[in-house]
């Protein structure tokens, strides 16, 4: 028996294949743009942060941020269109595929899309001669976790709305602030003291710290466990929310 989760994933991969060329191009071009503009451009003025070259210092954060963006972006229109315009979910709903299979298959697809983006980023860094083993080994795990941490609640959100205008609200008031204030481009310690705790609410902040700790060899078992536990909490909460919103939309 084919596993229903896998059959759902197969459909998403089939749909992805037909646009992989365009997607592959942007996967490589984005890290190049980020690293040259911010890394070299801004880095030319800043030189050092916490004793590290600015380019080296922001690279781990940029990778985590890419994963975070991928997880969030995939889970907006990709989910809403399945309900509203494509009808793919309605078709699945007419078969033995269960709601948890649909969500699981979808999230595995988001995870694969994220890992592809991360792999492209790592290749660009490697070509630039800046890839360290710590970064290469930790990136797939940390990035997978942070992608799912934002993808699960975003998927739940997208299954709950009817109007795509909500995605503008999400992008402006959640994703953009989270990206700007999660310590990707500058240390959180630069922020006013009252904002710092807020920035620790963002899963991206924890992923950025994990990536940096692994890249610079400053990881301790305690901090690694705590950061991952926090990301896991988002994944679990988002998973339950997604099950609720899918169920509400599909069982009536």
């Amino acid at each position: 028996m084919a596993n229903p989760t896998i059959t759902v994933l197969e459909r998403h991969m089939l749909l992805y294949q037909r646009l992989w060329r365009a997607s592959a191009f942007s996967l490589f071009i984005l890290p190049v743009l980020f690293l040259t503009s911010i890394g070299l451009g801004v880095g030319g003025y800043i030189h050092q942060v916490d004793g590290h070259d600015y380019l080296q210092w922001i690279t781990p954060g940029l990778i985590a941020s890419t994963a975070f963006q991928t997880g969030a972006n995939e889970s907006t229109y990709g989910v809403l269109s399945e309900f509203e315009w494509v009808g793919g979910i309605k078709a699945m709903r007419s078969t033995p595929v269960r709601i948890q299979d649909m969500i699981r298959g979808w999230l595995i697809y988001v995870l694969i899309a994220t890992e592809l983006a991360v792999a492209a980023f790592l290749i660009v860094i490697w070509l630039a001669g800046a890839l360290t083993p710590g970064l290469a080994i930790s990136a797939p795990f940390v990035c997978g976790a942070v992608s799912l941490a934002i993808a699960t609640p975003t998927t739940a959100f997208s299954a709950a709305i009817n109007d795509q205008d909500w995605f503008l609200v999400l992008a402006r008031f959640v994703i953009l602030p989270a990206t700007l204030f999660s310590g990707v481009l500058f240390p959180i310690s630069q922020l006013p003291a009252f904002i710092q705790p807020l920035s620790y609410l963002s899963p991206l902040t924890h992923a950025v710290e994990l990536m940096r700790d692994f890249a610079f060899g400053t990881a301790t078992p305690m901090t690694v466990a705590l950061h991952f536990a926090y990301l896991l909490a988002w994944i679990v909460a988002g998973w339950f929310l997604a099950n609720i919103t899918y169920r509400r939309r599909l069982t009536d």
Binding site: M1, A2, P4, T7, V8, R11, A91, T95, V97
Partner: peptide
């Protein structure tokens, strides 16, 4: 794709 949802090889 649809047939796979029913668990066939």
């Amino acid at each position: 794709t649809y047939a796979r949802y029913f668990g066939f090889s």
